[in-house]
Each structure stands twice: as C-alpha cells, then as structure tokens.
C-alpha cells in the first residue's frame, strides 16, 4: 500500500522558496496568489495490509527523520485517502 507523507514549513516561518515562486507567479500575471508555501511530498510504498499500523509507523518515520519539527509540520495519509 502507498502512504503519503506531506511535509510543509510551519506557519509563521518564512519560506524563501515559496516567496520566490510567488514573485514569479505575480510576474506571470497571477497577481491573485498570496502566501505561497513550498513543501515536500514523500511517497512510501509499504508492505503489509494493516492500514492503521502503516499510518502509525509512517508518523514515527516523519517524527524521526522525514520532517524537522523545529521548522516543519507533516500530515500522513493513505494514497487516495484523506489526510
């Protein structure tokens, strides 16, 4: 099964990449765009069939390695499912 981990910079933390993307979008004429944030999407192909365990372990992985809690938050969900 596929577990998705989405890692985003925490609210209130300056995201220079998001800022640069936003500037570029404005230059392209998409002036309505505000507060762009750029994060990461990590796709885990996991063996086993127990979804609860898979999600719990993916949370552990995010806590330990995939996200840095000082500056990033994360969400874990199954592919196709809701966060």
């Amino acid at each position: 099964m596929k577990v998705i981990v989405e890692v985003m910079p925490k609210d209130g933390i300056l995201d220079p990449q998001g800022k640069a993307v936003q500037q570029a979008l404005h230059q392209l004429g998409y002036g309505e765009v505000r507060n762009v944030r750029v994060g990461k999407r990590i796709v885990l192909n996991v063996e086993g069939s127990d979804k609860t365990i898979a999600l719990k372990r993916a949370e552990e992985m995010a806590d330990t390695l995939l996200a840095n809690e000082n500056v990033e938050g994360f969400k874990v969900h199954l592919a196709g499912g809701k966060a």
Binding site: I13, L14, P16, Q17, A20, N68, N70, V71
Partner: peptide
C-alpha cells in the same frame, strides 16, 4: 548537530535562495 538535537534550532535555506 541541530538535526541530532545536540544543539537547538535548524539551518534553513538562505533568504536569498
């Protein structure tokens, strides 16, 4: 050192990118 928690904080992208 910050990643391992031996020192507080984090090092992020330079603001200039």
């Amino acid at each position: 050192l910050t990643e391992s928690g031996l020192l507080p904080g984090a090092l992020r992208q330079n603001h200039s990118l």
